[in-house]
Nucleic acid binder design. Structure first.
Length: 951
RNA sequence: GGGCAAUUAGCUCAGUUGGUUAGAGCAUCUCCUUUACACGGAGAGGGUCAGAGGUUCGAAUCCUCUAUUGCCCACCA
């Protein structure tokens, strides 16, 4: 058999195995391959990354976690499906292509809609698969045969089906409201797409003259009021000023008029409860077209709405002299003009939250425009009910509250976008119908989007809107061919929220059939099992998916939502390309391997992950350790013909103590890891494995196995080989979900060994996964099961505990007295009890090897002679000869310190044990433990005292 | 303004439902090129578990308050 290289070549191994896994269809569900499965199907859908995106650390963490869960469940024999895909990211993708055009000094308008979309598709086809290629590098075992894109045919049909259905149910309406507008992207945004950031801005105090007191402003004296605003440019659209109805300072002004400066318009002073007399001057300027509060106030007082801005954030013709200026330019000029006219009072520094476009970071403008909305309350109610029934569980649990709070404060969802890349609204307008209906429509639109003011909405018919599952060329009502399709497209999340079922083939029938039926995949895999995602996406996506699942499928889309931490740079900031603090996962993969990346990330993922490059060394070092440990084991198996993972083989053999011990430890770890994976504690599971491999297996078992392998006792040699093979093989299975590549590479060598003999008789319910014999790939090997405590061995654990103490004691003495490792020592172990002596004698040889001793005596009684140093434990003392090295004074001091420590310790325990309440209330085991501890401490104290006395 | 999280060794973090003398990795120091691994081995030093109260036989762990940091949400101009 070819020996493994000393160095692990991750790059070569990763490509080799990924290609093979994919080409053999191992990523597909077992049922697709006609194989037997166990338990319920297990399904995950990937949170679809942005098609413009590249893999960043957040994705890497997210995908690693999902892959661990998927591979674990696949090994357990469940019918496992992981559906991958990307979303079309309307605004982001359009921005990318527009930027490209800008380099050629062109805009999308120059190309026109159709040509432009061709460009976007071209871009998508050329660049859109970057991220999925990168996911492959990571080792993600997605079923690529089921890969989906939100703009592909099936998903587009789902979007249209969803839109029309909601419209028919009266849950979609069109209306004129204040929405979040990005002047750069020139589109409406949903509330979630407006990211609020605290900005240190100004609160500007401005005089508005009271009408009727005409004359030059300079002579106004007290004949004015002062309003405070953060956005002075919007004053061009003011149609009132408001005060609180009971404010004694201004009550007399209510009903009077003031003059809007700069434009010289008369506007009324109104009274409204909304105004907070404590804030600013207690007077608010009211701009219904540019502020959501003012919009609501405007409705209450039937005020005119004056929109003073163009879609690209410039002042329009209603802004008089300021027409054509950019909004911020206009702000400056207005303040300047006001100052010149003596109407500017002062600027207070003011910290306030300002909305920014989450795609381009431009300051958002609250803007009055006609948009389409989803009425969310009925959807949220269903989600709240489903939560009460415990249909979806969040881990960690605290996110449940975040989710519920959002649902409870739900607001209608603005879904129309004034861009081109996306699903165009399936809405047509008939010119003739619109005309004939003029004046006789009953407009049931809510007065504002404010929750409390919403009336039950039915669909809006007033402008002759026709909503259709199929494209139409003439009006179904009047037959007119004078119809026009709505220019807008839908919010990208309007397709993402259907993701869990649209990717599984919903709607299965042609959309025209009206009642979508379930596809085979949908029947088998919906609802899915787990959703793994980052917290920032709960509102955008998770909550909406739950609502959509309930609305369209009648059931939640997933049973569990696992929220993992956010990946941040070491500085604490979010990692992002624009900040230049990101670490490219691909670079880490190149440098250290995908396994190293995955393992490091998962180990750190117990909470938010703060990354720096060095942190990946943990994973790299561990991968190297695994590699070399297995390399060693394989080297010991030369000529070995009895490789088997059949646990029954150990029944007939009298195993050595170290072998019993490692099997017992393995058993414990299997149980523990099972528990932790079930609880989503992946970081803990990874840490457990890390310590099992490194501490138990490498540092102790391999070292203990060396002398046994070299032993002349052929039976001992053989059983040690068996145990090495067995433990190592199981270890690889346990590690596989975390580090798939390296484990597969090594495991194949083990398999080659096992094929020569038998790898058949595995036990446990999942043992037949694969082929009923050794499967071709570790991916499909069975997941190790705790075997009814078969290997649990308290005696061996205790014995090896003694051994570790003894060896540790000797090593400590060597270092403390600077004895070269090559100096062979003589040591004596003095046991305090006969039973201990027998245990210690059983591993005399091992202690000699590991402690590099020339001679070892194990005795009950021992008289110290000459200069000897000792290390004491509760069960035994170890002495070594130190002629000419030992300084009695130093040693006495050390012992004195130890005695003091031990006495203090004993005192603490005694207090505890002798406390009657403790004896009464503490559980028996704890009491026993404490008593044992006390006895041990006392033994130790005696040892120290005896030693000190001997000097 | 509301909510959530974090605060444990020089640094980065574990610490399961309260129960050994609070752990790991990195860094530091000492020793070791011992035939799996120097991406290694052996050992050592280093912590009043943010602070103050409280519950308890017993608190890093549960409760209250305070401080600092971070995140999310929010229509007071």
């Amino acid at each position: 058999m070819a020996e493994l290289d000393k160095q692990y070549n991750s790059k070569q191994v990763e490509t080799k195995w990924y290609t093979l896994w994919e080409s053999k269809g191992y990523f597909r569900p077992a049922s697709d391959r006609g194989q037997k499965t166990f338990g319920k199907p297990y399904t995950i859908v990937i949170p679809p990354p942005n098609v413009t995106g590249i893999l960043h650390m957040g994705h890497a963490l997210n995908s690693s976690i999902q892959d661990i869960l998927v591979r674990w469940n696949r090994m357990k024999g469940r019918d496992t499906l992981w559906v991958p895909g990307v979303d079309h990211a309307g605004i982001a993708t359009q921005n990318v292509v527009e930027k490209k055009l800008a380099k050629e000094k062109k805009t999308r308008w120059d190309l026109g809609r159709e040509k432009f979309l061709e460009e976007v598709w071209k871009w998508k086809n050329e660049n859109g698969s970057t991220i999925t290629r990168q996911l492959r590098r990571l080792g993600a075992s997605c079923d690529w045969t089921r890969e989906r894109f939100t703009m592909d045919e099936g998903l587009s049909r789902a979007v249209r089906e969803a839109f029309v259905t909601l419209y028919e149910r009266g849950l979609i309406y069109r209306g004129h409201y204040i929405i979040n507008w990005c002047p750069r992207c020139q589109t409406a945004l949903s509330d979630e797409e407006a990211a609020h950031k605290d900005v240190q801005g100004g609160l500007y105090h401005i005089k508005y003259p009271i009408a009727g007191k005409s004359g030059p402003y300079e002579k106004m004296g007290e004949d004015h009021i002062v309003v405070a605003t953060t956005r002075p440019e919007t004053m061009l659209g003011d149609t009132a000023v408001a005060v609180h109805p009971t404010d004694p300072r201004y009550r007399h002004l209510i009903g009077k008029k003031v003059i809007l400066p700069l434009l010289d318009r008369e506007i009324p002073v109104i009274a409204d409860d909304f105004v907070d007399p404590e804030f600013g001057t207690g007077i608010v300027k009211v701009t219904p077209a540019h502020d959501p509060n003012d919009f609501a106030m405007g409705h209450r007082h039937k005020l005119e709405q004056i929109n003073v801005m163009t879609p690209d954030g410039k002042i329009n013709e209603r802004g008089g002299a300021y027409k054509g200026m950019d909004r911020f330019e206009a702000r400056k000029k207005i303040l300047q003009d006001l100052e010149e006219q003596g109407l500017f009072v002062r600027r207070d520094s003011h910290l306030h939250a300002v909305g920014h476009c989450y795609r381009c970071d431009t300051v958002i403008e609250p803007y009055l425009s006609k948009q389409w909305f989803v009425k969310m309350q009925p959807l949220a109610d269903k989600a709240l009910k489903a939560h009460k029934q415990g249909k979806t569980v969040f881990t960690p649990d605290r996110w449940t509250k975040v989710y519920l709070n959002w649902l409870k404060g739900i607001r209608d969802w603005c879904i129309s976008r004034q861009i081109w890349w996306g699903h165009r609204l399936p809405v047509w307008y008939c010119a003739e119908c619109a005309q004939s209906q003029t004046g006789k429509t009953t407009d049931q639109r809510p007065q504002t989007r404010d929750q409390k003011l919403q009336s039950p909405v039915s669909s809006l018919q007033s402008d002759g809107a026709i909503v259709s599952r199929e494209d139409i060329t003439q009006c179904p009502r009047c037959g007119s061919k004078d119809i026009k399709r709505d220019e807008d497209v839908l919010d990208t999340w309007f397709s993402s929220w259907l993701w869990p079922f649209s990717t599984l083939g919903w709607p299965a029938t042609e959309a025209s059939a009206g009642k979508p039926s379930k596809s085979a995949d949908l029947k088998k895999f919906y609802p899915t099992s787990d959703l793994v995602t980052a917290p920032e996406i709960i509102f955008f996506w998770v909550a909406r998916m739950i609502m959509a699942g309930l609305e369209f499928m009648g059931d939640v889309p997933f049973r569990q939502v696992h929220i993992h931490g956010t990946v941040r740079a070491a500085s604490g900031l979010k990692m992002s390309k624009s900040l230049g603090n990101s670490i490219d996962p691909l670079e880490v993969i190149e440098e250290m391997g995908a396994d190293a990346l995955r393992y490091s990330l998962v180990m750190l993922s117990a909470q938010d992950v703060y990354l720096s490059r060095e942190k990946f060394e943990v994973g790299r070092n561990f991968a190297n350790k695994v590699w070399n440990a297995c390399r060693f084991v394989l080297m010991q198996l030369e000529g070995f013909q009895e490789a088997s993972t059949d646990t029954r083989q150990f029944d007939k053999i009298k195993l050595s103590l170290p072998s019993r011990w490692i099997l017992s430890r393995l058993e414990e770890k299997i149980a523990m890891i099972e528990k932790q994976l079930t609880q989503f504690s992946l970081a803990q599971a990874a840490t457990e494995l890390y310590h099992f491999v490194w501490d138990d297996f490498c540092d102790w078992y391999i070292e203990l196995a060396k002398p046994m392998i070299l032993s002349e006792d052929q039976a001992l040699k053989l059983q040690t080989q068996k145990v090495l093979f067995f433990v190592c093989e199981r270890m690889l299975r346990l590690l596989h979900p975390f580090m798939p590549f390296i484990t597969e590479e090594i495991w194949q060598k083990f398999k080659a060994k096992a094929d020569q003999s038998d790898l058949r008789g595995r036990s446990g319910p999942t043992s037949e996964v694969g082929l009923g014999r050794c499967p071709d790939t570790l991916m499909l090997a069975s997941w190790p099961q705790e075997e009814k405590k078969k290997f649990h061995d308290a005696e061996a654990q205790k014995a090896i505990g003694f051994l570790q103490d003894a060896v540790g004691g000797i090593r400590d003495l060597r270092v403390r007295f600077q004895i070269a490792p090559t100096d062979k020592l003589k040591a004596v172990i003095v046991c305090k009890e006969q039973a201990t002596l027998e245990t210690v004698q059983a591993f005399e040889r091992e202690v000699k090897v590991l402690g590099r001793l020339a001679e070892l005596q194990c005795v009950r009684e021992f008289e110290k002679k000459g200069a000897m140093a000792a290390n004491s434990f509760a069960a035994f003392d170890i002495f070594i000869s130190l002629e000419g090295v030992l300084d009695p004074e130093t040693e006495k001091k050390r012992l004195q310190k130890k005695i003091q420590e031990t006495e203090a310790w004993i005192e603490t325990i005694r207090k505890k044990v002798e406390n009657p309440s403790f004896a009464q209330k503490a559980p028996k085991e704890v009491l026993e433990k404490e008593k044992e501890k006390l006895a041990d401490a006392q033994k130790l104290l005696v040892s120290y005292q005896t030693q000190r006395a001997s000097f």
